Simulated scan of single mutants.
Amino acid sequence: MDIKSNSLYNQMQSMSLQAMGNKLPVANGDSIGVGNVGQPNQSTSNFGNMLTDALKNVNDLQKDAGAKKMAFEMGDSNVTLAQVMVASSKSGIALDATVQIRNKFVEAYKEIMSMPV
């Protein structure tokens, strides 16, 4: 991999295209071939928004599990032990996945920061 000023961005964009089957989505639902790689893709979601939504989802799962635990402990007959265990497992798995993603981001950041400019 050759690292230059805009080379890293272009490489990331080309890898993204390869992952999507060499097609760029367009606002009207069609797809554009690889020939338009130099143009930024405005129809895709912002990465920051996607990350924020994912973290909100994990937070919601944690809150739901906590609420179900509290309801079960208080004797609510509408909440079963199975529901509490499933909600707790979902939130635990989501948190573990979030921690692993964070670790990968930190690892990638360290690798990028150690690259010579």
Rank of each mutant, 00 (worst) to 15 (best):
Q100V: 03
D2M: 04
M50N: 13
N36D: 13
K68C: 08
F105I: 11
F105G: 06
N59W: 03
G66E: 10
M1I: 00
S77F: 08
Y109D: 03
D53W: 12
K4I: 05
A94F: 09
S43E: 14
A54F: 12
T80D: 00
M20Y: 03
K90Q: 14
M15L: 03
N22I: 00
S5F: 07
S77W: 10
I101N: 13
S43I: 05
A19D: 04
E107R: 12
Q18P: 00
N57Q: 14
K104E: 12
K63P: 01
N103P: 03
N59T: 11
V34C: 07
N36R: 12
S77G: 00
A54R: 10
T80N: 02
P25F: 00
A108G: 05
Y9E: 15
V84C: 12
S88R: 13
V86A: 09
G38K: 07
I32C: 10
F72K: 11
G29Y: 07
D76C: 07
L55N: 15
N28K: 01
G48E: 13
Q11I: 00
F105R: 06
N46V: 02
M15E: 02
N59V: 04
M113K: 13
I3R: 11
S14F: 03
M12E: 00
N22M: 02
M74I: 03
A87Y: 14
S89W: 13
T44S: 00
M50F: 06
V99T: 09
G92Q: 14
E111Y: 11
G48V: 04
A87S: 15
Q42L: 15
D53K: 11
N28G: 01
G35P: 04
K4D: 14
V99F: 10
M115S: 05
M113A: 07
N49T: 06
N41V: 15
K110I: 06
I3Y: 09
M50H: 05
S5C: 05
T80H: 06
D96Q: 13
I3H: 07
G66C: 07
N28Y: 01
E73C: 01
N10E: 11
Q100G: 08
S31I: 10
K110L: 12
A54P: 09
N57A: 06
G35I: 08
K23Q: 06
F72W: 09
S5W: 08
V26N: 14
L81P: 01
G48A: 04
N6V: 01
A54N: 15
S14M: 02
F105N: 10
N78A: 13
I101S: 08
A97H: 06
S89H: 15
N103I: 03
A94P: 08
N10K: 12
D2Q: 09
K90H: 14
G75Y: 00
A27R: 14
N6W: 10
N6A: 02
A67I: 08
G35H: 15
G35Y: 14
